[in-house]
């Protein structure tokens, strides 16, 4: 018997259809996150919309949106890379802001630095326009194999 996360992961892996996975995470849908691939790796994409702004005079993305988008990217990365049967629980997350996010589309990709039996360490890079225009980097620990 397959669980909803396994079914959604199979759709993503076999048909590049990420909609079932995002449907299990209403907040990702609320933000408007899309999944693409870049250089054979999953890449999170956050299309810009005016209500994501936190400072109208620059205008700049809300710093919380950048953080939330990057945390979500890390969770999606884990769900796609591993065989978890639920969303891994966040243990901690630390983000360094390198420059303000512009009122533009934003992208994030991740590296699984370590996947142990219980804990995964993920680093996240967030950019706009081109991958070298990094606006924030982050890292987090996530609990794997959590019981029901």
């Amino acid at each position: 018997m397959s669980n909803p996360f396994q079914i959604a992961r199979n759709a993503a892996r076999q048909h590049q259809d990420h909609a079932p996975l995002l449907a299990l995470m209403p907040y990702a849908r609320f933000l408007g996150v899309r999944m693409t691939e870049r250089d054979g790796k999953p890449c999170s994409h956050l299309p810009f919309r005016p209500s994501l702004v936190g400072n109208r005079s620059i205008p700049a993305l809300h710093g919380g949106v950048t953080a939330a988008f990057m945390e979500n990217a890390a969770l999606l990365h884990l769900l796609l890379a591993m065989d978890e049967t639920r969303v891994p629980k966040s243990i901690d997350f630390a983000i360094d802001y390198l420059k303000p996010g512009r009122a533009e589309d934003t992208y994030a990709d991740c590296d699984l630095s370590r996947a142990g039996q219980r804990v995964a360490h993920v680093t996240v890079r967030c950019w706009q326009r081109t991958p070298d225009q990094v606006i924030a980097i982050a890292r987090g620990h996530f609990l794997l194999g959590a019981t029901e």
Partner: peptide
């Protein structure tokens, strides 16, 4: 309901907490 990060276990997404 939009705040959920895991609709099966009905937990709020950590990103919502971070934004707050």
């Amino acid at each position: 309901e939009d705040w959920l990060g895991d609709v099966v276990h009905r937990l709020i997404h950590p990103g919502v907490t971070s934004t707050l």
